[in-house]
């Protein structure tokens, strides 16, 4: 008995180390992956440093409304005369944080349900699969529009809702993956040792899904950013200051009719694109690491 636990922890730690090593390898050897990693790191550093380095203008300045870029305001000012660059610097952190939160919730739900469902099989499996089918036939954004009427959604609540809503898609992919894993010898060995299902799912199966999880994490973050920004754009969510809110404000203030203040809407749009493309590149680098056909 003691032997067995020692074996499990040892293999676990070495596996994690190997994984980290492989991730680093992928990121440093893949040009796009490296670029994405740098971009992501830059955005994170900027959002951490911004509140100190570039504080938001709290007061409006009526003499500087929608001004073009100048030495004082390198991206110009918004409809209340506040500096746009400070808003850009401060606006990314929250978006990233809550996208990550939503992705974590989605991954935990998807992996747990998918793996247990595939391992257990039988009626539960069939029921969950059917429910996932039903769930996936409700279009996502319209559903979110309806749901957002229920609570005054704050960022945290929205992240939780988004995480929970994304269960079905992930459940299906994880389930399919686990079904093929289930046939492997080491799972059979674990069953023969009469281990609990929880042990098999979290200690035997999840480590083998790490690559898959990493890729889906970046996918979920992307779709969460899409929903967050989309709902803000529709004017449904009164969120705090972030890039999506900037786009919405710029839109409702009609900056598209004024070519001088175009940066007010263009800057956050470009930033969101950069954030998403960095996520894509990092995700792709991780996928290359974990996809067995390319590992050798």
């Amino acid at each position: 008995m003691e032997n067995k636990t020692a074996y499990v922890t040892l293999s676990q730690s070495s596996r994690a180390k190997k994984m980290l090593h492989r991730i680093w390898f992928a990121i440093s050897h893949d040009k796009a992956g490296f670029a994405g990693f740098c971009l992501l790191a830059a955005i994170i550093i900027m959002s951490v440093a911004a509140p100190v380095a570039f504080p938001l203008d709290t007061e409006s300045d009526p003499t500087q409304i929608l001004s073009a870029p100048s030495a004082e305001h390198i991206l110009g000012t918004d409809h209340l005369g506040r500096d746009i660059f400070a808003q850009i610097a401060n606006g990314g952190g929250e978006l990233l944080l809550f996208a990550a939160l939503a992705a974590v919730i989605g991954i935990v739900l998807g992996v747990t349900l998918g793996a247990f469902s595939a391992i257990t099989g039988g009626k539960l499996d069939g029921l969950l699969l059917f429910l996932a089918d039903v769930w996936l036939s409700i279009p996502r954004i319209p559903l979110l529009v309806v749901l957002s009427a229920f609570f005054s959604l704050t960022s945290v609540k929205l992240a939780v809702v988004l995480g929970i809503l994304s269960w079905a898609g992930l459940y299906r992919t994880i389930r399919a993956e686990v079904l093929s894993l289930k046939e492997r010898d080491f799972i059979e060995a674990a069953f023969m040792q009469n281990m609990t299902k929880a042990h098999i799912v979290f200690k035997e199966i999840t480590p083998n899904l790490m690559g898959f999880i990493a890729v889906n994490f970046s996918l979920l973050m992307r779709s969460s950013i899409y929903s967050q920004v989309g709902l803000v754009f529709l004017g449904i969510l009164p969120l705090e200051q972030n890039w999506g809110v900037m786009i919405n404000q710029a839109w409702t203030q009609g900056v598209i009719y004024n070519a001088k203040s175009i940066l007010f809407i263009l800057a956050p749009t470009v930033m969101i694109c950069l954030l998403i493309i960095s996520l894509v590149w990092v995700g792709k680098a991780l996928e290359d690491v974990c996809s067995p056909s390319l590992r050798k």
Binding site: R222, I225, Y226, V229, G230, F233, I247, I256, Y257, A259, I262, I265, L266, T269, I272, C273, I276, I277, L279, V280, K284
Partner: peptide
């Protein structure tokens, strides 16, 4: 192609709008 498929469609719409309708 992967860039286009990744960024949200409404951001593409905003970019097109700026490109065609606003910039002189």
């Amino acid at each position: 192609a992967s860039f286009l498929s990744a960024i949200p469609d409404f951001l593409i719409a905003i970019c097109l709008l700026l490109l065609f309708g606003v910039v002189r």
